[in-house]
């Protein structure tokens, strides 16, 4: 039967290999009924953007624990825009200092979740903000 399913990509840009959080999140999305594509670690923004378009996802969740979010996150948004995929929502998480939030929001990151954020709060945000495509 016709049903517009929501697809989510969980991606790890940059050089840190700590993906426990990303995997737990992928699992939580799975359990919430989403189709989740996980890219694995050590991805460039270019790889992530290309994969997101090939997979035609509604949401990209970026996880970065290395401190390079200031470059990596905005770059993913920028690349998606360049490829005409600005409708793909991008959110981020990881070790991100409060004072960086505004810059990331300005760059088009729609939400940021840091250590301590509950899975429920993330799922709730996704449920409220990511709708099936037109």
């Amino acid at each position: 039967m016709t049903e517009k399913r929501i697809r989510i990509m969980v991606a790890k840009p940059g050089l840190d290999g700590h993906d426990r959080g990303a995997r737990i999140l992928a699992r939580a999305f799975r359990d919430a009924g989403y189709e989740v594509i996980y890219t694995g670690v050590h991805q460039t923004p270019e790889q992530i953007a290309a994969a997101a378009i090939q997979e035609d996802v509604d949401l990209v969740g970026l996880s970065c624990l290395s401190g390079a979010h200031g470059y990596l996150f905005p770059r993913v948004v920028e690349l998606l825009r360049e490829k005409g995929a600005e409708d793909i929502t991008v959110i981020g998480g990881g070790i991100i200092p409060d004072q960086d939030f505004q810059k990331l929001y300005d760059a088009g990151i729609k939400a940021i979740f840091t250590p301590g954020a509950s899975l429920e709060s993330i799922l709730e945000w996704v449920g409220a903000n990511v709708k099936p495509r037109d």
Partner: peptide
């Protein structure tokens, strides 16, 4: 009804 699609990890 959810899924983890992880084959792609090897092909990135």
């Amino acid at each position: 009804g959810g899924a983890i699609l992880g084959d792609r990890i090897r092909m990135q």
